[in-house]
C-alpha cells in the first residue's frame, strides 16, 4: 500500500494529552474526537491538513495516557500515517490494534515536504528533497494484525489461538 501526503511536523515527546485533551474524553465518537485533534499544541491543525497528510515527529511520540482516543482522533482526522523517531509503547500498540499506520524513522523531514510511503516494502521517499530511506518491517505477528485490519478482526481470525 502506498501513502502520499505532505508532512505536518512536530517535536519530541508529543503526549496524548495534547493529541486529544482529556476534557474531550466524555465521548468515544471518532468524528467528535477528530475535531479536537492536536488542538492544544497546534490550533491550526485542521486548517492546514488535507486527507492523506502525514505527521512527522521526533522521539517518544504518543507518550502519556493509554487513551486510544489519540490514534483514533489522528486517524479519523484524515492523517494517513505517523512517522516518528520513536513511539511511546502504548500508542504504538494502539496504532497497530486500530490500523493506523506508523513508521519508525529518523529521516530528515521538514514541514510541507511531499512524502510517499510504501508500507509493504518499507520505503519512505521524500519527494521534495529526493531522499529515500528504508524503514524496518513490523514483526511478523504484528504484520498479521495490521493485515487483518486491526486486533479485533485478527482475533476473529484466530490470532490468539
Amino acid at each position: 500500500m502506498e501513502l502520499k501526503g505532505k508532512a505536518i511536523c512536530y517535536g519530541d515527546n508529543i503526549d496524548t494529552d495534547v493529541i486529544i485533551p482529556a476534557r474531550y474524553l466524555t465521548t468515544s465518537d471518532p468524528a467528535e474526537l477528530a475535531r479536537h485533534c492536536m488542538e492544544d499544541i497546534d490550533p491550526d491543525f485542521h486548517s492546514k491538513i488535507e486527507t492523506g497528510d502525514i505527521i512527522a515527529a521526533g522521539s517518544n511520540f504518543g507518550c502519556g495516557s493509554s487513551r486510544e482516543h489519540a490514534p483514533l482522533a489522528i486517524k479519523t482526522a484524515g492523517i494517513s500515517c505517523v512517522i516518528a523517531k520513536s513511539f511511546a509503547r502504548i500508542f504504538y500498540r494502539n496504532a497497530v490494534n486500530i490500523g493506523l499506520p506508523i513508521i519508525v524513522s529518523d529521516a530528515e523531514i521538514r514541514e510541507g515536504d511531499k512524502l510517499s510511503v510504501d508500507l509493504k516494502n518499507g520505503i519512505l521517499v521524500n519527494e521534495t528533497t529526493g531522499e529515500k530511506a528504508n524503514f524496518p518491517a513490523f514483526p511478523a505477528f504484528l504484520q498479521g494484525i495490521i493485515e487483518a485490519g486491526g486486533l479485533m478482526k485478527a482475533m476473529a481470525g484466530g490470532v490468539f489461538r
Binding site: S66, R67, E68, I90, R93, N94, N97, I98, P139, F141, L142, I145, G150, L151, M152, M155, V159, F160
Partner: peptide, 19 residues
C-alpha cells in the same frame, strides 16, 4: 497499561499480545 482494543480483546479471550 494497554489500550481499549486490547482491553476488549482480553475481555473476550482472556489474552493479550506482548513483546
Amino acid at each position: 497499561g494497554v489500550g481499549s482494543t486490547d482491553m476488549a480483546a482480553a475481555m473476550a479471550s482472556g489474552k493479550v499480545w506482548l513483546r
